[in-house]
């Protein structure tokens, strides 16, 4: 039984380790590609932020 606990324990340990490595890598890659200064080569500084709203509602607000 000792061998099973050692083996399964090692497997779970490695799996948890892999989980954190994968999560860290995923987050860092997402942050890297969503960082506008890496994506837009600085063009974004010239423009204000865009609000993500439904264009349908945007038109309605303009008419009011």
């Amino acid at each position: 039984m000792g061998s099973f606990i050692i083996g399964a324990g090692t497997a779970i340990g490695l799996a948890i380790g892999t989980f954190f490595v994968l999560e860290f890598a995923t987050i860092s890659v997402i942050e890297k590609s969503y960082n506008p200064s890496l994506n837009l080569e600085g063009v974004h500084i010239q423009y204000p932020g865009v609000e993500r709203v439904n264009p349908a509602e945007r038109v309605a607000e303009d008419e009011e």
Binding site: S3, F4, I6, G7, A8, A11, A15
Partner: peptide, 17 residues
């Protein structure tokens, strides 16, 4: 021996998951 068995169970546990 213990190492062989632990390797077997590590692989089999991972395989089942």
């Amino acid at each position: 021996n213990l190492f062989e068995r632990a390797t077997h169970w590590m692989t089999s546990f991972s395989f089942i998951m």
